[in-house]
Simulated scan of single mutants.
Amino acid sequence: MSRTLKEIYEYDLIEDDGIDYTVDEWFNTIMAKTKDQLTVSDVSRMLRQKICSRVAIKRAIEILNDDPFIGEMFEGQLMFNLYAGKEKYLKLFYAQMRPMLEKAGLMAKAHNWGSEEEKNEYMDIIARFAQKIKEDNNETS
């Protein structure tokens, strides 16, 4: 049985104080979800907010393995958000990211991009991600 994020992280929900805070509502919503219930939107926001980073990174890798170009607002957004994730947690998943990045790079070459600029930005983030992993691997060897 999958546990909710609230159970995994033992977070308390944010109590309603009568003021409308959409971030609080969103936080309470994701805390009630299991990892598999997290949407692309949830994961992207978790990565940007640096909330529950381990779960967000693991779920992002799963999603990107299925569709390396997925995003809320633009193609590849989840990959960009993952790259900007909390470094100390990203490092824990570098081994799982390596094949996902290789696949994404190969698929990106044949992908039908909206513009050459979009393609170049995506390829750049893939290359920077791969370099970050390579440098970390050299440091730990």
Rank of each mutant, 00 (worst) to 15 (best):
G114V: 04
K119Y: 12
L90R: 10
M100S: 05
S41R: 07
A60P: 01
L38N: 06
G114E: 15
A60R: 03
M123D: 14
S53K: 02
R48G: 10
M97R: 02
L13E: 15
V43P: 03
M46A: 09
I61P: 01
D124Y: 08
S53A: 15
I63W: 07
F93G: 01
E87P: 00
V40G: 08
E75T: 01
K109G: 02
T22S: 14
W113C: 05
L38F: 11
G76R: 04
I70M: 12
G105H: 04
I61W: 12
L106I: 00
D36T: 04
F69S: 04
V55F: 05
L38Y: 09
D67I: 01
T22K: 09
V43I: 13
E118M: 10
G85V: 03
W113L: 04
N81G: 01
P68N: 06
P99Q: 09
F74W: 14
L47W: 12
N65L: 01
I30P: 07
M31W: 02
D12P: 00
N65T: 02
L92W: 06
I126P: 02
K91Y: 12
Q37D: 14
Q96L: 10
R59W: 08
A127H: 10
W113G: 03
E135V: 06
S53P: 05
M79T: 07
Q49K: 08
L101G: 04
L78S: 07
N112K: 06
F129Q: 03
W113P: 01
A104F: 10
E121T: 00
E62L: 05
D66E: 15
T22L: 13
M123Y: 03
S53D: 15
K86I: 00
K119S: 12
G114A: 12
T29S: 15
I30F: 11
L90V: 05
A95C: 00
V23P: 00
I125V: 15
V55S: 14
I126V: 15
M107V: 00
A56P: 01
V43F: 13
L47M: 11
D12I: 00
K88R: 12
T22F: 14
L38W: 09
V55P: 01
I14H: 07
Y11S: 06
T22R: 08
I126F: 09
F69R: 02
S41F: 11
N137L: 11
R128W: 11
R45E: 12
K33F: 08
E75K: 07
M46Y: 10
K109Q: 14
A56M: 10
L101S: 04
N137C: 02
Y122W: 08
Y11F: 14
E15K: 13
W113E: 08
G105F: 05
N112T: 01
I70W: 09
K88C: 11
L13S: 10
N120E: 15
M97F: 06
Y122H: 04
M123K: 04
K33E: 10
R54H: 11
M46F: 09
G114D: 14
V55W: 04
R98I: 02
I57D: 11
A60Q: 06
R128F: 11
V43M: 12
E102V: 08
D24C: 07
K103S: 05
K134T: 05
I61Y: 11
E102N: 08
Y11E: 14
A56L: 10
M100K: 02
I63D: 10
A108Q: 05
Y89A: 04
M100H: 04
K119G: 03
C52L: 13
I61L: 15
N112F: 03
E72P: 00
S44T: 07
S53V: 00
N81S: 13
